[in-house]
């Protein structure tokens, strides 16, 4: 594709999703836009990029195609093991009065993370407990995939234990569909992590894995600041394994305690810092009353 086309599409994606496509990623952009370009009857990627610039439907389609992440069930395993072995027992003890857990999959992509957690809860949640799993993403196409809860054979092979496949899925044509009892645990909502968050409440566990790496540093820091009030004071935030070592400015660093659970490092809201973080932040428009008020 022409450098000018790449620049156009990269700046569109950056503007709409804050995700950065560096110049050497041209092949990736081409590979992802190629099927759309053919579908739209364009003779070249450059022609398709022109169409994207004037057609909102194609614009949304191309953004969706460029924000897809490779993902698997129980990705990296260790976080899920840490969840069932350590975090869940702690939360069950702490929430014994309410008997309700809330979990946020904060860049849910096609939903494997949210449904993986749902499967574990189906196996480990004691009777009488309820759970609410919120799955959010910047891509509306991804959100409809989560709602449809259908996965291709190739996707099913990625980390899904065979025993869970036969227990939690039914064949639906060439795809596999999540059983209704699990689907009912997961609700979806459109949310751009790079923008101020809507009122979504607080969560016992927030999964923000393998998504910060797609943002530039100021945006990453902004997200980690804004997500803080949405993690319950005794809750957990899980980042991707390569994301726990990101350099943070001192004030942001002080907002989070790090706790090693097995092979996983969890972030937890720092108790000492809790009183100091509500004071002015670098982005005053983000620290809205509703968000600070959402803290327990």
């Amino acid at each position: 594709m022409a450098p000018a086309s790449f620049e156009l599409i990269a700046s569109l994606v950056l503007r709409e999703t804050s995700i950065i496509y560096e110049p050497r990623k041209e092949y990736l952009v081409e590979a992802r836009l190629h099927p759309l370009s053919v579908q739209a009857g364009c003779s070249s990627i450059d022609e398709y990029v022109q169409l994207v610039m004037r057609n909102p439907v194609e614009r949304q389609k191309s953004i969706d195609a460029l924000t897809i992440n490779e993902t698997s069930w129980f990705r990296d395993n260790a976080p899920y093991q840490a969840f069932t072995e350590t975090m869940l027992p702690a939360l069950l003890a702490a929430r014994a009065d309410r008997r309700r857990l809330s979990i946020w999959s904060a860049a849910c992509s096609s939903g494997q993370e949210a449904y993986s957690i749902a499967m574990l809860l189906d196996q480990h949640l004691p009777p009488g407990w309820t759970v609410d799993i919120l799955a959010t993403d910047v891509s509306t196409a991804m959100l409809s995939r989560v709602q449809n809860a259908r996965y291709s054979q190739v996707e099913m092979n990625r980390g899904m234990p065979a025993t869970s496949l036969v227990k939690y899925f039914n064949r639906a044509g060439t795809e596999w569909e999540v059983v209704p009892s699990l689907r009912s645990l997961v609700r979806t909502r459109h949310l751009n992590l790079a923008e101020p968050f809507p009122m979504i409440g607080t969560f016992d566990l927030v999964l923000l894995r393998n998504v910060l790496i797609y943002f530039d540093q100021p945006t990453r820091h902004g997200i980690l600041r804004r997500i803080h009030p949405h993690v319950a004071s005794d809750g957990y935030l899980l980042l991707g394994s390569s994301e726990t070592t990101l350099d943070l400015p001192a004030d942001l660093n002080a907002m989070w305690d790090r706790e090693q659970i097995g092979r996983v490092q969890a972030h937890r809201p720092a108790t000492q810092a809790a009183s100091t973080i509500a004071v002015p932040r670098p982005h005053p428009h983000i620290a809205s009353g509703s968000l600070t008020g959402a803290r327990p």
Binding site: A31, V38, Q153, V154
Partner: peptide, 17 residues
């Protein structure tokens, strides 16, 4: 089509669609 596509992209790479 979906089945052939999956076989193709799994084993024959997806640089060439």
């Amino acid at each position: 089509h979906a089945i052939v596509e999956q076989v193709w992209s799994s084993f024959l790479g997806d640089e060439e669609p």
